[in-house]
Amino acid sequence: MKTASGAQLDFGRLALLLLMLGVGWYFWYSPVLWPLKVLVVMMHESGHALATLLVGGSVDKIHLAANESGSCLSRLPPGFLAQVAVYSGGYLGSAVAGAGLLLATFRFRLRRWVLGAACVWLAVMGMLYGGDGFTLLFCLGTALVLGLAAKFLPDGAVDALNLFLAAFTALYAVFDLRDDLWNSAVRSQSDAALLADLTWIPSVVWAALWTLLAVGLLVVAAYWSMHAKPRGMQMPKVPTRARRV
């Protein structure tokens, strides 16, 4: 299968992605994956924080909890669109992070840069906005682990870690939408409920919109990630004498 630009489906990448998704799904309730779940919650709250800064607001604190919940306390400028952007930033932020990891890992093979960027992001967010001891400790501790992994792990281990982080983040972004937005009891206390109060559009409509956007973004990122541009054949150089007639 080829794209319009001639990129071909890389079945090796596809098999790796499916394998990592299967591992994440199978061990979903294992305590071993708890740090990764809290990490994606931090991506969610970072989405709120980034949206706040983009609309001209300020972020006070970010809180993470051991039960995989979180909150972003910020000051918003007046304006309808600003509030819509910030309330929507969480779920879409985690989907953007998942899509970015898929592309960086599978498409561009950035390897140690992926872990290095994650390390810097966590350290900065923890130092600037960590609102309690648990949040600060988690951000700095995870940043240290990722930084050491980027520095000392062999290439193969870095690739495996990146692949799993990318697949798990994408998987968790979808599961987060499912658990928070399609459970009516949870949805009544979610960002969708805040938008429903602001716009008079039912929270289930916001849930559907976010789900379509997030899943569509992840599907597009996965599609691009699984296709590699052909290197093509290079014609050998013809010696000068051979070209003379």
Score class of each variant (00 low, 15 high):
E45N: 07
F27E: 12
V114L: 09
A207V: 10
L9M: 06
L140D: 09
V219K: 04
C119H: 02
L21K: 05
G79S: 07
G232F: 10
L53Y: 05
F11I: 09
Y172V: 11
M20F: 14
G93F: 05
P31C: 09
Q234T: 14
A196H: 06
E68C: 14
H63D: 05
G93W: 06
A15N: 10
A117M: 11
W121N: 03
D132Y: 00
C72W: 05
D155V: 01
S5D: 15
Y172F: 10
G56S: 06
D179N: 11
G24C: 12
T52F: 03
T211C: 11
R187F: 03
L153N: 07
W224M: 15
G70C: 08
W210Q: 13
P31W: 08
T3M: 11
G79V: 04
S203F: 01
L33D: 02
V215I: 13
A193W: 02
L128F: 05
W224E: 14
L16S: 13
G131N: 05
G22I: 03
S46P: 03
N162E: 07
Y87M: 07
A193M: 04
M1K: 09
R107V: 03
P35H: 07
A166F: 03
A104E: 05
P77L: 12
V205N: 03
L165T: 03
A66K: 15
G130L: 06
V219Q: 09
V186A: 06
S188E: 01
W34E: 14
A117E: 02
G89R: 14
A49I: 01
D10A: 03
A167N: 04
W224T: 03
V219P: 00
V238Q: 12
Q83F: 11
L39C: 01
A196W: 06
A222M: 07
L161Y: 09
V38Q: 10
F80E: 02
A173L: 10
Y26V: 12
G116L: 09
I62R: 00
W224Y: 13
S58F: 13
L81F: 14
